[in-house]
């Protein structure tokens, strides 16, 4: 399937292994990525905090660019925060024709216009809803046997439920567990799996921010997870890059590797840890998990 692909900023900045692993995994899943190179940052909720109309207009521009991609079935993102921040803007744009026309009048200078009803799905949603877990399970070359994986969603992709389309038919707040199982791994449930990583306040209240990250990582350690997996690069920054500082804040050793979603999928589809950028993490998954026996050795 062909998708208008929005990689976000952080996946090309401080977590390049996310964007890189997505590019490696997409062809294996028969996903054609048409990258929206011209689009701007979603604003991560902070532009909306400054000026709501500005955030709505910038994201309407991104949506309009996505709608111009010939043959694309939908827009896909790889960041919980993009999903949530863009979804919030789209909710306003789709709800009110007058407002949409007003925003489109600003985009008209560039010859762009957003039409109501874009489908914008995170890679996680696309895996479950478009590809299907049965099909994905059939593609697994290296089941994640004996790998105990703790999901970490990121707030923006689990709340608020109504806006994100989470209901009995689409239990999107349980997709990570379903996915881990489909890939042959073991799900580890722990207290912090749907809580906040603390990243949004890292420059305002560093102590509280690191305490959040440290507690969730500690809960995962106590639940005996081998690693975490997250669809959010901003969570990844606080959980992985800041982990040594979070350790100091909560006063315990953590040493918990955190994988990006496409990395976990890529491992199960047979890609090598190195080509998925696993060696680029601050807490190297290779230092904690013996990939030669735990996963790599269990090749089907």
């Amino acid at each position: 399937m062909k998708v208008a692909y929005w990689p976000g900023c952080v996946s090309r900045g401080f977590t390049p292994e996310l964007h890189g692993s997505m590019a490696k995994v997409a062809p294996l899943l028969d996903i054609e990525l048409v990258q929206l190179d011209r689009a701007s940052c979603c604003g991560a909720g902070v532009i909306a905090e400054h000026n709501q109309e500005l955030a709505d207009t910038l994201n309407a521009r991104t949506f309009a660019l996505a709608q111009q991609v010939q043959g694309a079935e939908l827009m896909m993102n790889i960041c919980s925060t993009c999903q949530g921040a863009q979804g919030e803007c789209q909710e306003r744009l789709d709800a009110n024709a007058e407002y949409r026309a007003h925003v489109n009048s600003t985009l008209a200078d560039e010859g762009l216009s957003y039409e109501k009803g874009l489908t914008n799905k995170n890679f996680l949603w696309l895996l479950v809803e478009e590809i299907g877990l049965d099909k994905l399970g059939g593609m697994v070359k290296r089941p994640l046997t004996n790998l105990k994986v703790g999901p970490f969603y990121g707030c923006y992709i689990v709340r608020p439920r109504a806006r994100l389309g989470i209901d009995d038919e689409h239990p999107r707040d349980h997709y990570l567990e379903q996915l881990i199982e489909a890939l042959g791994g073991t799900v580890i449930e722990y207290a912090g799996m749907r809580k906040c990583c603390g990243f949004p306040i890292i420059t305002m209240n560093k102590q509280a921010s690191l305490k959040q990250a440290g507690r969730h990582l500690g809960d995962a350690v106590d639940a005996e997870a081998d690693c975490l997996v997250t669809p959010c690069p901003l969570c990844h920054l606080n959980l992985d890059m800041q982990q040594p500082l979070a350790e100091k804040e909560v006063g315990r050793e953590l040493n918990m590797p955190v994988l990006h979603l496409p990395q976990l999928v890529g491992l199960a589809l047979g890609l090598e840890p190195k080509e998925l950028g696993l060696s680029r993490h601050v807490v190297r998954p290779t230092s904690v998990i013996d990939w030669s026996s735990a996963v790599v050795g269990a090749a089907a």
């Binding site: 000026n51 709501q52 500005l54 910038l58 521009r61 909710e91 709800a95 009110n96 600003t106």
Partner: peptide, 26 residues
């Protein structure tokens, strides 16, 4: 993008759609 900034930010008052007040029209 910069033109969008100029256009939106030069308005004398911020335009803020509150769906709680307006509801959905469609």
């Amino acid at each position: 993008v910069q033109k969008i900034y100029e256009k939106v930010e030069s308005k004398p008052e911020r335009y803020e759609l509150n769906l709680y007040v307006t509801g959905e029209d469609e």
